[in-house]
Amino acid sequence: MQIDAHQHFWKFDPVRDAWIDDSMRVLQKDFLPEDLIPLLQANQIDGCIAVQADQSEEETQFLLKLAEKYSEIKAVVGWIDLLNLKVEDRLAYFSEFKKLKGFRHIVQAEPKGFMLTPEFQNGLSKLAKFGFIYEILVYAHQLPDAIEIVQKHPEITFLLDHLGKPNVKTKEIELWQKNISQLAQFPNVHCKISGLITEADWSSWTYEQFVPYLDIITKEFGPDRMLFGSDWPVCLVAGEYEATVDLVKNYISKFSAEEQASIMSKNAVELYNLK
């Protein structure tokens, strides 16, 4: 079984989804399971993890309803207001949904220090009680905050989305590498090989541009803590679904069969406790 550990669904709303501006016009429409499933099948991917793209419980419920209907959606990573003083009550409610495995907040849109506030720390501290993971979505310059929260919460399983979003377009790598090295020292942190092509020049990226970043991730995390994700449909601004699959499979082709299986399947199955 091969798993796409990172993709999104939405019914496009120009007000709610204002982040999808005219430069991303290809995303200004609905993207639903019936659009993704043929792509999964064509690329021999058996299932996917639906990840939040909107900061609302309504979207979490929307994704859970899709997961009930489509067996290809193996798990959901939703959103919950971690700043809510009654967050534990909401976590107890959501713990009844078996396909809901964790939560994410779009921290890349928040000011520096957001994750270090007492309110966020309090909400985060409640996740492990209910067996939920937390996915870290930050820009590269926010990685020091990520390092600090991981250090403070060894009881939580963390997944770093999109390699911590290095700026591939400007070839930024040294500071990102330093922070990735620190973050990878914590054994409860795993890394998604996802979202790469959207951090490069959308119209002229090449496979070779990504190799130095993937080499660093492999060195620091190792194949036992790496997961493949397409970031579909966001990836469409820079390439088709197949391009995200081919990029990762090309890179890991030199790995052992066991290591390839870990990245494409085993790690996702274990981390998300897929049935």
Rank of each mutant, 00 (worst) to 15 (best):
E148D: 14
K219E: 15
K275Q: 15
I3D: 02
K254P: 04
A18C: 12
T170C: 12
K171F: 14
D30E: 06
I216Y: 06
A67R: 02
N250P: 08
Y134N: 03
F228Q: 00
S181K: 13
P38R: 03
P187M: 04
I263P: 01
L163F: 05
Q61R: 14
I49R: 01
I216R: 07
G123P: 02
F158A: 01
Q121K: 11
E242A: 15
Q182P: 08
W205D: 01
G113D: 05
K249R: 15
P144W: 07
I156N: 02
N267E: 04
D30T: 11
L127P: 03
L82A: 11
H6A: 01
F186Q: 11
I193L: 13
K29F: 05
Q2S: 12
E96W: 13
I180P: 00
A268T: 05
E242V: 11
K171E: 14
M264A: 11
V168C: 07
K69I: 08
A42F: 06
L32V: 10
Q185W: 09
F12M: 08
A200W: 02
K171D: 15
Q121M: 13
N167T: 05
S71R: 10
T117D: 05
Q177R: 13
P14D: 09
A184L: 01
P118Y: 12
Q61G: 14
P154Q: 09
A18W: 12
S125K: 04
T60F: 04
I136P: 00
E68Q: 12
L39E: 03
R25V: 15
V76E: 03
T218W: 10
K249H: 12
N273F: 07
D13W: 04
L137A: 07
D30R: 05
I197C: 01
Q2M: 15
F97D: 02
E155A: 11
H153N: 13
K99V: 04
N188E: 06
Q44C: 13
V76F: 01
D4N: 08
G123W: 01
Q142D: 04
K74A: 09
D21L: 07
F210H: 04
E96S: 15
N122D: 12
E34C: 10
Y251F: 05
E155R: 08
T218F: 06
D54S: 13
E72D: 13
G229K: 00
P187A: 04
I106S: 11
I197Q: 01
P154R: 06
K11N: 10
K126H: 13
N167H: 11
R104M: 06
V234C: 02
E199I: 00
K178S: 13
I20W: 00
G47T: 06
I106M: 09
V189N: 03
L236N: 00
F120H: 07
I263V: 09
K126W: 08
D224A: 15
D145F: 09
N84M: 05
Q61N: 14
Y251G: 03
Y207G: 10
D30L: 02
E96T: 14
K112V: 15
R25N: 14
L236P: 00
N179C: 12
M264S: 02
P33K: 02
F97T: 01
R90S: 15
L40S: 01
M115I: 11
T244K: 00
S204R: 09
I106V: 14
A238T: 01
G229M: 04
W232R: 05
K165C: 05
K192D: 00
A243K: 10
G131S: 09
